[in-house]
């Protein structure tokens, strides 16, 4: 691992930072590598947030273009992934604010009506059959899509982007306590929702 010092502070150059240095020195293939590394997680995060594939594609493209144009502003003292996810997060939140597309989501008070997917699945589960793990997983992730945005964004940052609580707090600008509480609350909602359909029974 390479190191270099900036303002008397030693900065560890991880793989991402080495790639960024190469991009800044004009190496196109390094940007391609960065894209390949983050494409899947960014696209899936955006897709689950906006729930529209065409929009997700556009936003993912915008994200990479934005990353490239802002790269000269990147401070090597910080982790690249956190910096990038923050840009992605802001892009998606801006889009959602401008296009209020959330009508169908789970509420804290459970007074919502189940969407078609859920109705379809519950009829299937009326039988006493034990469901396959993959089916439960798919059901759980579809339920994640229905969470209110303030919970969903944190669940996605935690499990799709694989960020730690402190990194999520940095990305979203929320205090770490709020991040933890919201994630607990979100998992609570998810568990209750799935439990209703007996999905988590052994």
């Amino acid at each position: 691992m390479k190191t270099f010092s900036s303002k008397n502070r030693k900065i560890i150059l991880d793989d991402d930072k080495i790639l960024i240095k190469k991009i800044l020195s004009g190496e196109e293939s390094s940007f391609e590598e960065i894209m390949r590394k983050y494409n899947k997680r960014i696209f899936n995060f955006v897709l689950r947030m906006v729930r529209n594939e065409e929009v997700a594609i556009e936003l993912t493209q915008d994200f990479f273009i934005k990353i490239f144009t802002k790269l000269y502003k990147y401070n090597f003292e910080y982790k690249f992934s956190t910096w990038a996810y923050r840009i992605c997060y802001n892009l998606v939140i801006d889009y959602i604010r401008k296009n209020q597309t959330y009508v169908n989501s789970l509420d804290d008070d459970s007074t919502y009506k189940k969407n078609s997917y859920m109705r379809e699945s519950s009829t299937k589960e009326d039988g006493a059959d034990v469901l396959e793990r993959e089916e439960v997983k798919s059901y759980l992730w579809k339920t994640v899509n229905l969470l209110p945005v303030k919970y969903k964004e944190l669940i996605l940052l935690r499990y799709i982007q694989e960020l730690k609580y402190d990194e999520i707090s940095e990305v979203t600008n929320l205090p770490i306590g709020t991040v933890k509480n919201r994630i607990f609350k979100a998992k609570d909602l998810l568990r209750k929702e799935i439990e209703k359909d007996g999905m988590l029974k052994k």
């Binding site: 391609e32 894209m35 390949r36 696209f43 273009i65 439960v136 997983k137 759980l140 499990y159």
Partner: peptide, 25 residues
């Protein structure tokens, strides 16, 4: 649930994303 959340279902991003960005940049 934690185990299931730790193994998310990823959708493969379309190849046109990379192509578009590289062409554009």
């Amino acid at each position: 649930m934690e185990k299931l959340l730790n193994n998310p279902i990823y959708k493969e991003p379309p190849a046109k994303i990379e192509k578009f960005v590289m062409n554009r940049l």
